[in-house]
Design a protein around this nucleic acid. Structure first.
Lengths: 226, 226
DNA sequence: CCCCGGCTGACATCGACATTACAATTGGGT
DNA sequence: ACCCAATTGTAATGTCGATGTCAGCCGGGG
């Protein structure tokens, strides 16, 4: 289990690192926000412990940036303040738990264990069709091993197409699943969305995966036709 | 809602059975792969929960055998391992979801409910006549194992002919089913449509399936009829 | 051998879809 | 508070394929 601690106060940082290491975790330590973000992006941590008050980029900023990159590992916040609004803000941004300084190490350890257990239960589910991988938890997509950044809508659409690959999906279905509209047909959102998705996952590849079936809908089709 | 749990560890198995039963499901339990397979084949379950590691025949084997028998109910995999390749292997074989042990029961329940809701959405409804297969869901057609692309109208027409194979369908009927016209007889759309369909499913095959009955209409005739 | 129903290929057209540009909205960064 | 960039929806225009029409041909049964 690898944990990243982002903490600027040397004493607290060292203390955490040592304590967690003694409890059997592999621990890396970053001393400021930007370093922490960079570190979190370069390796796969099972958990991040974030101080709210950090030089350069505060805890919220780090968290926001992480989530934006699609890093969905659990995050434990450390804060000196106990105001409700801070807590709310953090939770809205996807912090998984909160700990108010000062705290007992045993308390921290208990929460860490809880978060890691929860994290396991939500183990990433990976959809794979042809050479495309879609990681639902990390919200990441690769084709032929190359990372592809998708927007929220694009991701939803691709997820649908992959879950039901080789099946022609009528536009009405797509509309109800990806948007929640009952198909006010005087719009072409779907075509545009498909276009944008194609630009990212099909353009530049020899074998196209997304196919149009006139008068019926769209399919994501595996290259092999029985 | 009937669920089959295939799990060899007595503790886990009983735990699941009891928990699911308390949640209102009818649950059967099999303790090994072959039993599970046999059980799944003998009754209609809405969902199967499969442990990957089983004595005799592992989870993948069971899943594969089930699919081969045409049992398309959703399958939830339980695995102690978290390696990516295991997940991928399962998903490729058609597992619908994954859960890594240990897991919270609430998590399991949530996934079970999701899968049941999704239900038999992925079960292919397939019409078969002679060596032609028409998959209504995927909107795909094969003859003699070879894929055939049809347009919307062609598909409708073939569907009608297959649903009522060995029956002579008068043009008026075809007109009303495939087009929604009351047979303005000064058109030959039907002939043209039949021609185009023949080009795709009969041309190049020894045994023709679509036959004209002068003055009456068209039939899709199985070679062994009469 | 002729006639009528059906067959066939060519062509026209209409609409579904593609594509691009632009506007509206959102949310982060200064 | 403002600006910038990214995302998403809207609109206008282009393209192409599915489908209908037509004109001529074919062939079986009288």
């Amino acid at each position: 289990m690898k944990i990243l601690v982002v903490e600027d106060e040397p004493k607290t940082g060292d203390y955490l690192k040592q304590g967690l290491a003694e409890s059997g975790f592999v621990v890396d330590l970053a001393r400021n926000g930007p370093d922490g973000l960079h570190q979190a992006g370069s390796e796969d941590y099972d958990l991040v412990i974030l101080d709210v008050m950090l030089p350069g980029l505060d805890g919220w900023g780090v968290l926001r940036a992480l989530r934006k990159e699609g890093r969905m590992m659990p995050v434990l916040f450390l804060t000196a303040r106990s105001q409700v609004e801070d807590r709310v803000k953090g939770l809205e941004l996807g912090a998984d738990d909160y700990l108010v300084k000062p705290f007992a190490f045993a308390e921290l350890l208990a929460r860490v264990r809880t978060l890691l257990r929860r994290g396991r239960a939500t183990e990433p589910e990976v959809l794979r069709v042809a050479d495309v991988e879609l990681d639902l938890m990390r919200r990441r997509v690769h084709r032929d091993g190359k990372r592809i950044d998708l927007t929220a809508k694009e991701f939803l659409l691709l997820e649908l197409l992959m879950r039901r690959h080789d099946e022609v999906l009528p536009r009405s279905l797509i509309a109800s699943q990806v948007w929640d509209m009952n198909f006010d047909s005087d719009t072409n959102v779907i075509e545009v969305a498909v276009r944008r998705l194609r630009a990212k996952i099909d353009d530049g590849y020899e074998t196209k995966l997304i196919h149009t079936v006139r008068g019926m809908g769209y399919v994501l089709e595996t290259p092999d036709a029985r």
